[in-house]
Amino acid sequence: MEKNLNHLEQLRDHILRRIPERRVETIEDAYYFIEEVGFCHLMTDGRDNMPSLYVAVCGRRDVRLPRNVQSDAETSLTWHLKDELARLGAAFYAKQLQNIPTFIALDLVPYFYALYSCSPAFSPQKFSSDAIAIYRSLRRESPQTTAQLKLSSGIEERKRFDKALEELQLAMQVVMSEVRYVPKFTYVWELAAVRFPEQLRKPKRISRQDALRHLITNYLATVRYATARQAQCLFRCSPAETGRALEQLESQSLIRTFAESNTVLLIADEDRLPPRRIDLEKASAW
């Protein structure tokens, strides 16, 4: 088993760009990286068993976030790439996974939407009154800066505004579409269905269980191995839901499971579940 895991770590080095020759240096590199892994956290050190744009920028395994991020070149580049990816709409910027800033490849957005959104259309009864006010304000005018949105929604108290906005982000109803630094720093907010109409205005009819199975498949194809607990916590699903998805993957011989020290280890089959491949035609068009 130890020899097998060492081999899988070497595969991870390539997929997650933890080697100098594959590190992310440009906006094109960042786009290709997200397309290769499907989804990734923005600014983490990779110890949570998730792809990380910051780790890919560093191009090495043993990464630690610096104390002074303002003067760190790798951190600054990661933030710059985040701003550009969001501005270009090259990937969906959200907080779906563990409430951590995350980029999602556009082909996976309908699956995340099926798993996390309240329904195919906005349902006021599913949201707080503050969230409804922000949503309706963006329906009248979108996009808006943070200051504009606070004023137009009538929610100027920062704590209330942030809580309501996060509620809408987690349900994939609102997305940050731009970061502005002049004349002062601000985010720009937009209805997700307006920003990504192809993925969200007429979402595919995907069941919650099918969406979870598809996303776990993508996750394991990327990280190559994980524990059942990690998969469950990552997607915030019940043990029963996660268990059904894993049983289906195992029945299709896409993964193998091993029990070690009261931990169920999931390993992607090297032949039946290869890493994601980039759609070169789509990538060239972008």
Rank of each mutant, 00 (worst) to 15 (best):
E157V: 08
R158P: 01
K159R: 10
R160C: 09
D162I: 14
K163H: 14
A164G: 11
L165N: 05
E166M: 15
E166L: 15
E166F: 11
E167D: 12
E167K: 06
L168I: 08
L168G: 13
Q169L: 11
Q169I: 09
Q169C: 11
L170D: 13
L170M: 13
L170V: 11
A171W: 03
M172N: 08
V174C: 10
V174Y: 09
S177N: 12
E178T: 07
E178P: 08
E178K: 14
R180P: 02
R180A: 12
Y181R: 12
Y181P: 00
Y181N: 03
V182C: 03
P183G: 11
P183M: 07
P183R: 04
K184Q: 13
K184G: 06
K184T: 10
K184S: 14
K184N: 09
F185K: 12
F185Y: 13
T186W: 02
Y187F: 14
V188W: 11
E190R: 06
E190G: 08
L191F: 03
A192G: 13
A193I: 12
V194E: 15
V194W: 00
V194R: 10
R195P: 03
R195L: 04
Q199I: 02
L200T: 08
L200A: 08
L200H: 02
R201M: 12
R201V: 04
P203G: 04
P203F: 02
P203Q: 04
K204H: 07
K204E: 15
K204W: 10
R205E: 12
R205H: 06
R205K: 10
I206N: 01
I206C: 04
R208S: 10
Q209C: 00
Q209L: 01
D210N: 06
A211Y: 03
H214S: 12
L215W: 02
L215Q: 04
I216H: 00
I216M: 11
T217I: 00
